[in-house]
Every structure is written in structure tokens, then in C-alpha cells.
Design a protein around this nucleic acid. Structure first.
Length: 203
DNA sequence: CTCTCGATGCGCT
DNA sequence: GCGCATCGAGAGA
């Protein structure tokens, strides 16, 4: 008999080996999966932001430093950084090796392992579980220990193909919290899957 | 070495 | 809407 796909297809290197803004849009609807003690914690990506290279003042890769070096590396790797003394943010490296780029995962719609996510985010209502870059990292237990993982092969953190999202359901806005020059501030590089119940302000 | 401040979240007003 | 927690990366001295 024909073997049915027992598991959804994992996103490949080629998926990430594209223009960063294209990947940011294409990531909407894809499933982010975290494996913790054989338990699947997952959610559909519903908000992303693209960050470029030396031409993008808002990007960590605006300057090439030890921390941002991974953004200049091959696509498909996780870039997790620590911010504000207490939060982590998850990015996916894009573009061919030598060309800097990454997509910040800002929000997901919880799908599997919701009870575990609640445990990681005590005192928080379900709607606020993963609707922010720091929040989803906390809910999925993503820390800098996962920085540099190959998302196309890692058993503990990866992306699976999800439903495709039509343009009519996508809102595009400038990025949140960007303070570079006006060009960096105004770039329409934030993508939001509109039907998703988001607390983040939609403009 | 020292200083600044951030791709944030939360609680209180 | 506003302040604060909390600390490492990066820059300047």
C-alpha cells in the first residue's frame, strides 16, 4: 500500500534560502514545533518580521558582530537572542550563506501541548500564551541554549508545512519597536495573519 | 573597564 | 498609558 504521509513535511533548506521578506510572508500559517520530553508543543505562525543585513539599521546584522554572525551564515538555522534582561526571541536565518537575514517569529496560535504551555506561563490567560516574541519563547521553553540549531534537522525545534494563507487575510505594517532611521522604521516588513486573535495592535 | 539601552512583558493607574 | 524588571552585547575610553 502507499505509505501515507504520517507526518507533515518539514520545511527544507530551500524554503529559507530566499529573500528574507518573502520568507517572512511565507512563514505565516506554518507550524512551529518544539519537542520537550517527547511531547509536542506547537502553534501556527501568525505574526513575523523580516530583518535584513548591513542595509537595515533595525537589524542586529546591521553590524557584523559575534552575536549577529549567524545571520550571515547558511539559511535554516535558529537565531535566539536574549533581550531586556529576561526575554528570549526566536528568529529563523534566511538568505544564502554570506548574505545576512532573519525572520523574527512574533506570535503563534497554540495547537498542541497547550496544557504544557500554560504550565510555562503561570497566571496567564490562554489568549496571551504565545502572542508575543518573548511570550512564545517562554511558552515553548525556547532559550539561548537552542541558538544555532539547524531547524531542518533538529529533533527538538523545527517547522512543518501548515495551511497556506491567502493575501486577503494578511496585514502588512512597519516593524514594532524599530528606532533606526526613517527608512528602517517605515519598511513594511511585518506580516500578520489577520484572523488570528492577536492582542498586538493591528494598524 | 564602564556605560548605555534594547526586535519585551507585566502590573498598576 | 506608564514605569519597571534585569542583564548581556556592543561601543567608546
Amino acid at each position: 500500500m502507499t505509505a501515507q504521509q504520517p507526518n507533515p513535511a518539514r520545511l527544507t533548506r530551500e524554503f529559507f534560502n530566499r529573500n528574507t521578506v518573502v520568507v517572512a510572508r511565507a512563514l505565516l500559517g506554518q507550524r512551529l514545533v518544539r519537542l520537550l520530553d517527547d511531547q509536542r508543543l506547537s502553534g501556527l505562525i501568525c505574526e513575523t518580521e523580516a530583518y535584513g543585513g548591513p542595509e537595515d539599521q533595525a537589524s542586529h546584522a546591521y553590524r557584523r558582530t559575534p552575536r549577529s554572525a549567524i545571520m550571515y551564515g547558511p539559511p535554516g538555522y535558529a537565531y535566539v537572542y536574549f533581550i531586556y534582561g529576561m526575554h528570549f526571541c526566536l528568529n529563523v536565518v534566511t538568505e544564502a550563506e554570506g548574505r545576512a537575514g532573519a525572520v523574527l517569529i512574533r506570535s503563534i496560535l497554540p495547537q498542541e501541548g497547550i496544557a504544557l504551555m500554560r504550565g510555562h506561563r503561570p497566571g496567564v490567560s490562554d489568549g496571551q500564551l504565545t502572542n508575543g516574541p518573548g511570550k512564545l519563547c517562554r511558552a515553548l521553553r525556547i532559550t539561548d541554549a537552542l541558538n544555532g540549531l539547524d531547524l531542518t534537522t533538529s529533533p527538538v525545534l523545527f517547522l512543518e508545512a501548515g495551511p497556506s494563507i491567502p493575501d486577503t487575510q494578511v496585514i502588512i505594517t512597519p516593524r514594532i519597536g524599530v528606532r533606526g532611521d526613517s527608512e528602517a522604521r517605515l519598511r513594511p516588513w511585518r506580516f500578520v495573519w489577520q484572523p488570528a486573535p492577536l492582542a498586538a495592535g493591528l494598524e
